[in-house]
Amino acid sequence: MASIKYSVLDLATVVEGHTIADSFNASVANAQQAEAFGYTRYWFAEHHNMINVASSATSLLIGHVAGKTSTIRVGSGGIMLPNHSPLVVAEQFGTLETMYPGRIDLGLGRAPGSDQTTAYAIRGENMGAAFHFPRDVQALEHYFAGDHPNGVSAVPGEGLDIPIWILGSSLDSARLAAEKGLPYAFASHFAPALFLQAIDLYRKNFKPSQYLQQPYVLACVNVVAADTDEEAQYLATSLQQLFKGIVTGRRQLLPPPVESMEGIWSYQEREAAMQMLAYSFFGSKQTVANKLGDFITRTGINEIMASSHIYSQEARLKSYRLLAEVLQ
C-alpha cells in the first residue's frame, strides 16, 4: 500500500455504563497513543443536544488534548461556523495556536451539528447563517491575515498560520474548497452518497492558493480492526446499533456489542444504516489492509481519517494500533 497520512476523528462518544468524564479521559488516552503511532492529526466534531456525543464545546476539548500531547496536530472536524461569530472563532483558535504553535487545525462546516430546534437555541433569529458560510470563511481568513475587516482585529489570531479546512458531504462544500484553494475533508463515514462526485468536482475546479498548490483530499471512514474478522464484526455491532439510533431518531449511548443484529433492527433500518456505513472497514489487520488499500487506490485520497466507535476502550486502542501498522 502506498504511504498515506492517517488521522483520527473523535466525537468524545459517551459509552453506556460510563460518564462524560470517562469519555474525555478516553480521548486523551486515544490521542496519546495516536501520537505514539504516527497519526498526523486528532480532530473533534462539534455536535449539540446528542446524548452520545460530548464534543459540543469543541475548542475546549482541542485545548485539553493538545495540552496532554506533544506533537500530533489537534483540531476541529469541524467547527460548525454558522453557530459562531467568525471573530470569536478567530480568537479561540488564535488562542489555541498561541498556546500550541504549529499544531492546531481549523476545519469548518456549514451544518448545524444538531436538529433545527437546537440550532434555533444556538442561533436565535439568525437561522439563515448557513447561507453566509462562504462569506464567514472569508471573514476568518481576513482576521488571521490582519486585514482588519470593519476595523476589528482578532487578538490573539492576527498574523497566525492556522490551516483552514473545508468540511462537507455535498457538492457545495467541494466547490467552495476548490474556489478558495483549501484542503477538503469529506464526511464519508456517515454521508457517502456524493463522495466520489464531490472529490472529482473539487479536483477539477481547484484553484492554487497561498495555502495550497495542489488539491488535498481527506476522507473520513469508519474503521474497526481486531485480531480476526469475526472479532471485528462483533465489535462493529456497537456502531451498527448507534446508526440504528440515528436512522430511527432514537439515539442512545454507545452500547456493548452483540453476537448478532438479528432482531435488533428491521430490514428497512438495516438498509438505511448500511447505506450510511458504505465506507466502513471492519476486519483483521490483513482484511483492513486489503480493503483500505483498494479504497485509497480507487479514490486517490491524500489522507485517511478513522472514526472508531468501539465500546471497549482497550479494543479501541488496539484498533488504532492495528490501523497504524497497516498504513505505516
Rank of each mutant, 00 (worst) to 15 (best):
A2V: 14
I4N: 02
S7L: 08
A12M: 07
G17T: 12
A21V: 14
A26R: 14
A26I: 06
V28I: 15
Q32W: 07
E35D: 11
W43K: 06
E46W: 06
A54I: 08
A54H: 06
G63V: 14
V65W: 01
A66Y: 07
G67R: 12
T71C: 04
G77R: 02
L81R: 05
H84W: 14
S85E: 04
L87T: 08
E91F: 13
F93K: 04
F93D: 00
M99C: 13
P101D: 04
G102F: 13
I104Y: 03
I104R: 04
R110I: 07
G113N: 06
T118W: 07
A121D: 06
R123T: 07
R123W: 09
G124A: 10
M127T: 14
F133C: 01
D136N: 13
V137H: 01
V137Y: 00
V137W: 00
E141R: 15
Y143V: 08
G146K: 12
G151S: 08
G151A: 10
V155A: 07
G157A: 06
L160N: 00
W165P: 01
I166N: 00
L167C: 06
S170R: 09
S173W: 05
G181C: 10
A185I: 10
S188F: 05
P192A: 09
I199S: 00
Y202R: 03
R203S: 06
R203K: 15
K207N: 10
S209I: 09
Y211C: 05
V217C: 04
A219Y: 07
D227K: 15
T228L: 08
D229I: 12
L235G: 01
T237I: 12
S238R: 03
L239N: 05
L239M: 14
L239D: 00
L239P: 00
L242Q: 12
F243A: 04
F243G: 01
K244Y: 02
I246F: 14
R250W: 03
L253F: 10
P255G: 08
P257R: 03
E262K: 15
I264A: 02
W265D: 00
Y267T: 14
A272L: 05
A273F: 10
A273V: 10
M274D: 05
M276P: 02
F281S: 01
F282N: 01
N290T: 13
L292F: 09
T297R: 14
T299V: 12
T299Y: 08
I301E: 00
I304T: 03
A315M: 11
R316F: 05
K318A: 12
K318S: 09
E325I: 11
L327N: 03
Q328I: 13
